[in-house]
Design a protein around this nucleic acid. Structure first.
Lengths: 174, 174
DNA sequence: CGGAGAAATTTCAAGCTTAAAATTGTTTTC
DNA sequence: GAAAACAATTTTAAGCTTGAAATTTCTCCG
């Protein structure tokens, strides 16, 4: 999966014509595309993790959780956090435990439904998050700096199409 | 990080003009792009993991390791595998242990340098990998099926540019 | 030759992640 | 108003991942 050579540049996407000539079940173009996507995403992600650890002694999951809470001044239900972060509920449990211990978030049981836990950033947590978010934005900006404005727009649009394709495929195989 | 709403579609990339008018340090466009990239990659990755588990009772790291070995009929040194997979050496140690136990790979100490471990697919491992690889290609093909041939090509090129940008940034901050 | 230093790998401690089972609490249905 | 169904969360067991420290083995310089 991670085998894309770091500096190879650009195989051609097969067009309709070529496709007709291929052996049945030839998915090389899609595989290459997936590999390249994964490589980009892994490179950025590792760098972000490394810097969060070095500069803030923190981790990506913690940052992500706080990022969710930042937009919800009144707090958020655990299940909602889990859905938005696309991780399992059990995972959230652990993260919340640590972030509560460290004073970054608070946790309350909803009085009207005692199954429901609501978490929110504490003032301290919010302040910390803001520092991290500012640095995070700088890192990303720097990593993407070599991309012309035009390319950023194109990439954004193409990724939107890809996302629709993926979601459609996931929906097909219910 | 994973907070991109599943169905939002397309904010515009800021162009040069707009950029001049922005507050210093506004990195919203890059952040959105990164978020979208990460979403796509996470969606695909989770689906692949799920299916590897369901259909083969296997995992993505194991699949990746075997994929590296498939192209190296004479085997590969552990350190080389670690570099290609972009994971830590200690990680490889564990994976190799399990794949050896299960008979998928063999491991030899190089006689001329007893520090060096060489691993290779066993015939059984190769057969298993081929089954998995074929299915894997089908899954990816299906997930990317909604993308027109033209878009595939464009995306491939834009991701190549992005990759160069990332690698350049990483090199800058040695 | 003999040690200093380098290289390859392993070990360790800590944290993340998941699916599945178990808990706890609420709602719905007869 | 109980039992069944459903919901939110936690627990559990297993595996992945990392960085740093430790080990083993080689290489090279004097």
């Amino acid at each position: 999966m991670m085998g894309e050579d770091k500096f190879d540049i650009s195989p051609e996407w097969v067009d309709g014509e070529t496709k007709a000539l291929e052996a049945p079940g030839d998915h090389r173009a899609e595989l290459r595309l997936w590999l390249r996507l994964l490589t980009c995403s892994t490179l950025v992600e590792s760098e972000v993790r490394r810097r969060l650890r070095e500069e803030f002694d923190s981790t990506l999951p913690r940052f992500d959780l706080m990022a969710q809470l930042e937009r919800a001044p009144d707090g958020m239900v655990l299940g909602e956090v889990s859905k938005r972060m696309m991780v399992s509920p059990g995972n959230i449990t652990v993260l919340v435990e640590r972030l509560t211990e460290s004073g970054h978030i608070s946790r309350t049981t909803l009085p009207t439904d005692r199954r429901v836990q609501i978490i929110a950033l504490t003032p301290f947590g919010r302040a910390e998050f803001e520092k991290m978010a500012a640095r995070h934005a700088d890192w990303i900006s720097d990593l993407f700096a070599g991309l012309a404005a035009k390319d950023g727009g194109v990439l954004m649009d193409e990724l939107a199409k890809l996302k629709r394709s993926i979601i459609a495929a996931l929906a097909r195989n219910t």
